[in-house]
Amino acid sequence: MRRLELAGWIVVAIVVSGLAIPWFLWGDATLVAGLPLWLWWHIGWMGLTSIVFWLFARRAWGIGIETNSGDSSPEQPPQSTTGGERP
């Protein structure tokens, strides 16, 4: 379950980064209130990103990094014989 959630957040991070530049407006020069539309998109997108980051910080902070939270399923798959400190 935790793994699925992690994958979900990775996808969110990629989408958030991928659309900060509105590629679908490439070559477009529409002006809205004195500024190019693509700049408005960027401003709105950065605001949205902040909200997404805030949600992440509230709901999922620690995912993929913290390992000592008692109730979550183990992050490490059973075949981890390659890991671990040597005695």
Binding site: A13, V16, S17, I21, P36, W38, L39, H42, M46, T49
Partner: peptide, 20 residues
């Protein structure tokens, strides 16, 4: 002005993700 986009992506988002 496209430089706003480059800086926004680089510092505002990519660096923030690396922050985590």
């Amino acid at each position: 002005p496209e430089w706003v986009l480059v800086m926004g992506l680089m510092d505002g988002i990519i660096f923030a993700v690396l922050w985590y």
